[in-house]
Amino acid sequence: MITIEDLDIIAQKTKDRIDQSPARTVIRIATCMATGGIAAGSQAIMDLMHTRFDGSTDVEVQVVKKGCVGMCRLDPLVDVLVPGNEKVTYVKMDKERMQRVIEEHILGGQVVAEYTLHVANDHLLNDYTVLEA
């Protein structure tokens, strides 16, 4: 049973977790786990994150679910928030791509640009349909 004062205490304590700015102190990986994300396969990404980071000793990462921002056609979306850096959103992710993000971005500090959004003249180039490969 909490009081009104407790609300502020909890908010203060949790502020860092939800901080989307470079000022945050812990790495956070938030995967879209709304229906659109799940349908696009985000559960596999969550599983990978938990396996990799739960109780990990090399790096501290908050692995969290997030809700829907409304761009379900680019799902699964994954936000990577690294202290000191701007938020990076990866789109159309899968386990293999995520593996690369872990290695290059989380551990290596290099954003994997090709999984981020590519915009030309206000048009998103990420969600093209493949006619032939």
């Binding site: 936000d79 938020k87 981020t116 959004l117 590519h118 030309a120 206000d122």
Partner: peptide
């Protein structure tokens, strides 16, 4: 004529 860029955070796109 054609502005093409990589945008890291989804919140920044025109959408």
């Amino acid at each position: 004529e054609l502005r093409s860029e990589r945008i890291p955070a989804i919140d920044n796109i025109p959408f």
